[in-house]
Design a protein around this nucleic acid. Sequence first.
DNA 1: ATTCTCACA
DNA 2: TGTGAGGA
Length: 143
Amino acid sequence: MAIPFEELTTVFSFDDFVFRIGELSKMTGVSPRQLRYWEQRGYIKSLDRTDDKRARSYNYAAYVSVKIIKHYLDDGYTLEGAVSQMRSAIKYLTAVRQFIRHSVTSVDFEDGGAVIDLGVFDGDQQKHLYAHTRGTDINYEIR
DNA sequence: ATTCTCACA
DNA sequence: TGTGAGGA
């Protein structure tokens, strides 16, 4: 029984994850003071604050950005350098994510491994490219 | 209990 | 960037 990948992506939305500054701080090891400062500098952004919500809130995208900045910061980069690395990393991640979103149409399982449908392969759009994965080993098949 | 802004012995 | 004040 193949799982329709698109349904999973609509049901499982990362945007449903929203954190406040204290939570994001614990999740990333970055102090609330730093988070506010980074936002002031335009490095990260919090969700729009409506009249009733005076406190900042962050989505998953913000979490990823902070996590990446923190990574390079710990690696010895300056804040500006870490932010630069974060921006390019986000570009790569976005490109890969988009590719996967549009290429993976379904996933099935056969004898312990996954069979991932990578969509139409030929110009006539009659055949699909399948990736058979077991662990880190990947074999391709046109069917 | 948390978060916010502002100022800085 | 940290910290404390004074509010909400």
